[in-house]
Amino acid sequence: MIYILCLIFFMVGLYGVLVKKNIIKIVLGLIIMEYAVNLFLIMLGYREGGVAPIISEGDSITEFIKHSVDPLPQALVLTSIVIGLGVIALMVAICIRLYEKYGTFDITEMRRLKG
């Protein structure tokens, strides 16, 4: 169920990229897609009523594994957020430069390269 929500979230982002003409909205669409995937990754490792995957002294390992959520997806998501941040920063920077050059945010007017 929750995965389907993720999927819908993802589709919303894809819709943005596909349909919107404003490059900022396209960037937003991409961000939404990315976060949908991040959410999906987090969901993979989640278990109901789980504890944070931090092992403290004195815990038995087997008990801990039974209760904790999977730590790996969280690590992945952290990394992916960092990467996403870099990409988005670059994207927005390029958007600004594009606006300086073309004087518009409309992607359909940026068609010098074709054929």
Binding site: V17, L18, V19, I26, I107, T108, M110, R111, R112, L113, K114, G115
Partner: peptide, 11 residues
């Protein structure tokens, strides 16, 4: 077909 429209490419 390669019209330069980004949305086409995504499609």
């Amino acid at each position: 077909l390669h019209s330069g429209l980004l949305s086409n490419y995504v499609i």
